[in-house]
Amino acid sequence: MRVSDLIRKKGSSVVTLPPTATVADLLEALDEHRIGAVVVVDEGGAVTGIASERDVVHHLRGGSGTHSPVTELMTAEVHTCTAGDDLVQLATVMTERRLRHLPVVEDGRLQGIVSIGDVVKARLDALEAERDMLEDYLRR
């Protein structure tokens, strides 16, 4: 299964913020959408960073406030994937690098986002389908 298959099933909507957003804006977006990360994009739609719940905790624990710009806490070196990437390989990369969210980028433009939960669910669904086919085959 490829990232494109997953995006087709789950949808391509991504919650984003501009680099001018504040940590308070980030907290509001995370809570409102019940998500774990927000992609920071510039005016042209290019990914400039990603900000997660972990980033917020680290930021606030360090004594910084919610009026700080999101650029102070976001991860600027964003690991991304493409629509053609294989989900099994993606799971390995996400596990090894301890990444919970990967923006899907094609031609420099944000196309979606994949979470480790999405990858695990897709893999479990594939295994369940394979099991069902094998059980059906054995019943014949």
Rank of each mutant, 00 (worst) to 15 (best):
M1P: 01
K9T: 14
S12M: 00
S12E: 10
S13G: 04
V14M: 04
T20L: 08
T22R: 06
D25V: 03
D25T: 07
L26F: 11
L26R: 13
L27Q: 03
L30V: 10
L30G: 11
D31Q: 02
E32M: 01
H33F: 11
R34K: 07
V40F: 04
E43K: 00
G45E: 01
A46F: 12
T48W: 08
S52R: 09
R54I: 03
V56P: 02
H59T: 00
H67A: 15
H67V: 09
S68H: 15
V70T: 12
T71Y: 04
T71D: 00
C81T: 15
A83W: 00
A83Y: 00
G84I: 04
D85W: 01
D86M: 12
L87K: 06
L87M: 09
L90W: 02
T92D: 03
T95K: 13
R100Q: 11
H101G: 12
P103A: 10
V104C: 13
G108M: 07
L110S: 01
Q111T: 01
I116V: 11
D118Q: 08
D118N: 10
A122G: 05
L124F: 14
A126P: 07
E130S: 02
R131V: 11
D132K: 10
D132E: 13
L134P: 01
E135F: 12
Y137Q: 04
